[in-house]
């Protein structure tokens, strides 16, 4: 048996395949193991680091699982009331038109209590970027039904499955806002496989770059899992997401800028 390599021998530049972006803080993530939020955080911060935008970025955190996003992102951030992040970001961006302003919101925040703020920020064509993590459930409050919960899906407040007759239908808010002339780039991604992570990163890059064009709102939905809320293992939840979430929320660009 050959001699074991020391840490110093392994940690050399030619061996490096991945490093954590310096724009993520040392705070331990508070998300459940297996959740997609951590990857989404990392991708956004990685892109901001690569584009050298730290000093020009102001982020807005929501209410929900990612309420503490500012603990993990090493940028200036403001915590918004439930659903109001697009209005908060509007206030910032209108007064600092040259800064990069984004919100990071979940589906309860963005598509239920904040529907009005979301639609109107999109409709005014605010030059901000919205990152929307959709896992079809209220994670932080303990797994209640969300506006994006699928028909038949069991949650704490739809224990026999979402009954569309009495509880309505899952809201495809991303398709809805893509119809508005105020949005510039609208896309739906996921971060559950390496291939999807690479695609999502490209989408995030575009959504950040496009803000400089001042042509309207850029919107990236990330369909994600909630293994705790869905009461599955991380692997089961990813499989369930592919089989159930993706048919209802198909991945890919929904609105791309016209070529000219």
């Amino acid at each position: 048996m050959s001699q074991l390599l020391t840490r110093e021998e392994i940690c050399v530049p030619e061996n490096e395949v991945y490093h954590r972006t310096c724009l993520l803080t040392d705070a331990a993530l508070t998300y459940c193991p297996g959740c997609g939020h951590g990857t989404a955080h990392r991708l956004i911060m990685e892109v901001i680091e690569e584009m050298g935008l730290q000093a020009d970025t102001i982020g807005v955190a929501p209410v929900g699982c990612s309420v503490l996003a500012y603990d993990f992102m090493d940028i200036d951030m403001q915590q918004a009331a439930h659903g109001r992040a697009p209005a908060v970001a509007t206030g910032i961006k209108r007064l600092y038109p040259d800064k990069f302003v984004f919100t990071y919101q979940g589906d309860g925040d963005l598509a239920a209590i904040g529907t009005g703020e979301t639609l109107h920020a999109c409709n005014r064509g605010e030059n901000i970027t919205i990152f929307f993590v959709n896992n079809g459930i209220y994670g932080m409050t303990g797994g209640q039904m969300a506006p994006t919960t699928l028909p038949g899906m069991k949650t704490a407040t739809s224990p026999f499955g979402r009954d569309t007759e009495s509880m309505g239908y899952p809201l495809k808010i991303t398709e809805l806002i893509a119809m508005l002339p105020g949005t510039y780039y609208v896309t739906r991604q996921s971060v559950h496989t390496p291939q999807n992570v690479r695609k999502a990163k490209k989408a995030i890059e575009k959504a950040i770059q496009y803000q400089k064009l001042n042509r309207g709102l850029n919107f990236v939905e990330i369909v994600s899992n909630c293994n705790s809320g869905w009461k599955m293992t991380p692997l089961e939840s990813n499989k369930w997401m592919e089989e159930n979430m993706f048919p209802y929320y198909p991945l890919g660009d929904i609105k791309v800028p016209k070529q000219n």
């Binding site: 807005v60 403001q78 918004a80 009331a81 109001r84 209005a87 908060v88 509007t90 206030g91 109107h120």
Partner: peptide, 10 residues
């Protein structure tokens, strides 16, 4: 509601 949260951001 949106007005006051725009104020909050600014």
């Amino acid at each position: 509601i949106a007005s006051i949260h725009m104020v909050y951001g600014g």
